[in-house]
Design a protein around this nucleic acid. Sequence first.
RNA 1: CGGGCUAUAGCGCAGUCUGGUAGCGCGUUCGACUGGGGGUCGAAAGGUCGUGAGUUCGAAUCUCGCUAGCCCGACCA
Length: 446
Amino acid sequence: MRLTKYFLPILRETPAEAQIASHRLMLRAGMIRQASAGIYSWLPLGYKVLRRIEQIVHEEQQRAGHIPLLMPTLQPADLWRESGRYDDYGAEMLRIKDRHQRDMLYGPTNEELITDIFRSAITSYKDLPLTLYHIQWKFRDEVRPRFGVMRGREFLMKDGYNFDLTVEDAIHAYNRHMVSYIRTYERMGLKAIPMAADTGPIGGDHSHEFLVLAPTGESAVYYDRAVTDMTLGDRAIDYDDRGQVSEIVATWTGPYARTDERHDPAAFAEIPEERRVEGRGIEVGQIFFFGTKYSEPMKALVVNEAGERVPVQMGSHGIGVSRLVGAIIEASHDEKGIVWPEGVTPFHAGIVNLKQGDAAADGACEAIYAGLRAAGLDPLYDDRDERAGAKFATMDLIGLPWRVTVGPRGLASGVVELTSRRTGESEEMSPEAAVARLAGIYAGVR
RNA sequence: CGGGCUAUAGCGCAGUCUGGUAGCGCGUUCGACUGGGGGUCGAAAGGUCGUGAGUUCGAAUCUCGCUAGCCCGACCA
């Protein structure tokens, strides 16, 4: 993309309403614009990041064998009356009447709808196990939305639901989700730690939430440093291999890691002091096993091998997709702006032409731009007629992980500069070498 | 939902106390000089002062209502 043809409404000054870094930077970098309290438009740059995160979530869910579908945002109230949650959910649920005075609601989650879909189609244990998921907008009418997309009323969430015959099968689904989540967050450059959690209004028996470590996080967290040293990496995972999956879960949930709600100071004190860490975290996902909480009242039954009709064992599993955009920025920024991890960056690299209109500089930039695109990358070429300082400031603000700086001075000796946003380190090389280097860097990014 | 606060140009703000018909910086447009970290000079455009009513010869300014937004707390992917 050429910047002169793009829509990137960056702000030089910080809007007064933004209190935390991610909100401030998302507004300044032209990623979002508030429509009303807790409701945002996603401008092109923000939308690209959102889509990249969504794509990673899709890839990892499907790798784990989960099936995508799409349910609507508006749901009929009757389904919620069946589960008993229409009255339980309270004012957080946005209730709407259609023209026929039918009670509708903007879905805050989808257990009822998915259970209805399941029961209408599946009646035999032979069709299990099954995990369905979607990525769809949710609405929860928060009393006090704040922190930009971190705590919006409308938010994009991946929510998945497993249907299994036995508790053991459902626990495997739970474990499968945990492993796929660990990998998902890793691909986004995040350190997200599973922590035992309360089940809240969704209910159920076990639950973990995933906390991204960031100093501005909403929750106080206590953990053994051992959890932050673990990496799943690229290892081959067979999601049908219960032994392998449960072993990974055991490894990741072994060390002490709790939010303040579940904190046990006595157990924490037993960790060697040098490994004890008190920090803050942002919740970016949660998994639940809740058995027959919905299948029983909503009569989602299957016939088992013995010919008996039994309620399916279920769980639900969520990733806060739109919240992740903010969480990643909280975890990765500096005083100049955002620092995107390669896995989610809106553009792979920025090209800064220091002297627009200079034949050599223009030519070299065009060649690099074409070269990067030919290599399958998505570069952002700053071809505005701006001074170098303004271009650098823009690139730093929007946080592309790599920048190719092209100017007449360097070109005189045949070189351009490749700079890492994270470290600030630059290296001079030929334009061709810069393209090859970037292609190599991204070949290693899943 | 309790407590506090705000609303004036795209953004950041002054002007309100003490009523006289709206201003500054950034950004934008045009011109010139510039050109490796938000450069300089000159010119210009841009505002129903959130909204409704009231007081007054006259309201951004005073009074009352309403709406929207923000912050602290309690609650949440």
